[in-house]
Nucleic acid binder design. Sequence first.
RNA 1: GGGCGCGUAGCUCAGCGGGAGAGCGCUUGCUUCACACGCAAGAGGUCGCAGGUUCAAAACCUGCCGCGCCCACCA
Length: 861
Amino acid sequence: MQATDMPSQYDPTAAEGRWYPTWIERGYFHAETPSDRPPYCIVIPPPNVTGRLHMGHALNDTIQDIVVRRARMQGKETLWLPGTDHAGIATQVVVERELRKEGLERRDIGREAFLERAWAWKEQYGGEITRQIKALGASCDWDRERFTMDDGLSRAVRVAFVRMYEDGLIYRGERLINWCPTDQTALSDSEVEHQEIEGELVTFRYPLADGSGHVAVATTRVETMLGDTGIAVHPDDDRYRDLVGKSVRHPFDGRELPIVADRAVDPSFGTGAVKVTPAHDPNDFDIAERAGLPLMNILGPDASLTGAVPEEFRGLDRFSARTRVRERLKGLGLLVSEDRPYRHSVGHCYRCRSVIEPWLSGKQWFVAVERLKEPARGAARDGRIRFVPERWSRNYDEWLEGLRDWNISRQLWWGHRIPVWYCTDGHEFAATEDPEKCAHCGSTEIEQDPDVLDTWFSSQLWPFSTLGWPDDTEDLRTFYPTSVLVTAYEILYLWVARMIMSGMYLVGDVPFRDVVIHGLVRDRSGRKMSKSLGNVIDPLDMVAKYGADALRFALARMASPEQQNLPVAEEAIEAGRNFANKIWNAARLLLRAYPGGSPTLPERLTLTERWLLSRHEVCVGEVDAAIEEYRFDDAAQALQRFLWSEYCDWGLEMQKGRLASEEERSGAASVLAWVLERTLRLLHPLMPFVTEEIWQRLGAGESIVVAPWPEPHPEHEDAGAEASFRDLQSVVTEIRSLQSAAPPELRGKVSVDEAWRDRVEPFLADVRRLTAAELSFADLRGAMAKLSIPEGFDLGPIVEQKRRKLEGLRDRLDRKRAKLANESFLSKAPPEVVEGERRDVEHLEGEEARLAAELEQLGTS
RNA sequence: GGGCGCGUAGCUCAGCGGGAGAGCGCUUGCUUCACACGCAAGAGGUCGCAGGUUCAAAACCUGCCGCGCCCACCA
């Protein structure tokens, strides 16, 4: 039989190596269009080409594979579309680092050579992460794999840009942007992460130009006073009313700075007067615009001081300048106070963690969001898009409400170059194809904008650019809108919201129906996994050590969308491995008796079989509902409970006798095989490899990957069988419990009360096997079972245990009885609850009597 | 400053109006012919604190304490 070649330990590596290539080869993951089947589609959140698979990816991909595999088994035309993101800054930084090893900067070799290097790097190392995704068993359609800078997607980017440009949704403007002095590029607001740091709050005085006094101002970046061009106060602030219109004198260069009134000033903060640095603070920029104050740029691209600052500060980096300016003010007697440390929130680059500088960097491209955001908000409000968990919809809505125009130009080389050209006559135009001449005047003296687009500009097109947009393709018609997007909450705004906006604007419909937002993977004590903390668990190590199924099951087991933090410990993955091994061995046992083939149910079933079918039916319902609702933790738990605690511990154990019997073997084996085969199908989305490996040995069909999702069999629900079987279970458990308190030599002889004879006798042999005891029946006066032990032998621990149990039972009974004696309970509680309490009391009374009788038996023995 | 989430067994968490649960860990006993990656029997919890609503609260409301996160141009 097939079991003979099954070792006692499941070998995940062998199964993974055998099945994944087979699945690919047979094209199971390939979606066909057009198709008569209902479509089901997920686009993968594209990982960075530079990336390596971490636990976050493993979780994200596991969840997607679970819903995708279930959909495929449900007979849907299923597409899980994979790919990678060019990841502008991230990739450019990697290539620059390589160059630096050769002593070169990117500007040394020029744009074209640099891009060649970048592409070469991408070709050589860029596929790493997709190989790693495959190791998880992900059922992606690799024939449709995409890259955000491949030809098709690049065209989609250009078409999207030009359409938005011509529609007035993309414009070029000069204003303050978030500047990263390390990466030397602009960043969008979403790419800036605010973090509390310990800085300083310095208050100093500006002397009035007419010598009549001072105005004090406070700042956390005192070096910016070199670029101050005014002072602002609130118009209703009586302290300063008389000063508006006057001016102060700059202590270092003698410039006169006018004092203006502006409602943006909060009179209750600091001194109530604000220094205005229009070129280096967005607030001040606005004030300056309203008051007509000039801009004065004092920082270079690397944030060192430059421009019209006094000689002594020129060339200093911003932090040294901060100290130098403070010391100079102190020397001049203008320093009022310095609060240090002063905790306040400062923006950092999401890539390199540098402190962001609000900066003027020539003209930048922006997306005007006003017309985009309302449809995107509406889609979530009217249910066209559903967030899971639902609470994210509010965050989403409020974020969109406050959204400001999106800066999309980046001063990088790696990325989609902005498809706008300028001619020497000052014309500007956008084009989807590289033009030969100016679209306005025909001049051939044209030059393309040097900047590239924010990497998220192409990412936002992902759900439709990957399906062929802007062409009206079969894939796009079939799979758009996609079914569900699975992502972590950290990119809800950066990515998800923008896909919704652009999808609705460019394609005319939402990009996906459900948005499943899962938590972030943490270490066991809830900390982020990071190299510097040394707490990283590498998913590939785990796959190698315990198998992909073990990792997937461990991740699924905790993947409740409600959970924000998902602590992963190696023990959990080990537990997943143990579970796979348990199932493997269950199959090993069964396959000694089962000849193989599609299992069928016999006409007549034993109690154990009816119980098992009934419990299995519960499991089918639970798993199906759980996955439907993205409750992967519930699905995993239901499967583990059924397979381990019910199928193995009771189903197989009870049937061992029949499996050993010549006449009964076949019937018993086919029921067990029928249940196992269906349960394997239920488990397959979570543990694809071990389920396929066993399914093949059962000989149930071509591949479990394309086997149908188990349909419900409500006729198998059998409350009567469950109740009778529970009785049997309690007799067995009672005997074992008594045995555990006695020395081994006294465990062998047990009597069971006559009252249980009818229920136990038909299974006498099984109960004997499960308890390793001789059984006889006797009148035990209400006790369930009794060990035959010498007169006066003390089963102390079990007596103690039963005594405590009885005590607890009586407490509960008292509480219930008091409840039933309570007038207001009887009159106000719903009748079915009252009835339920009555039944409880009845049941508990029975338990009480039995426990008392058992104590009696223990006492007299 | 605004918002969200979480405090339940040693650990990680589920339960979210009428019997305190799971996995891991722990204790004890088992080379039982599927599995020691196992089997069996157990121990362990004033459900963060204080009020309130209710016949009934771990669950609902209010406040407090303690963690964590997101958003935000208070110099």
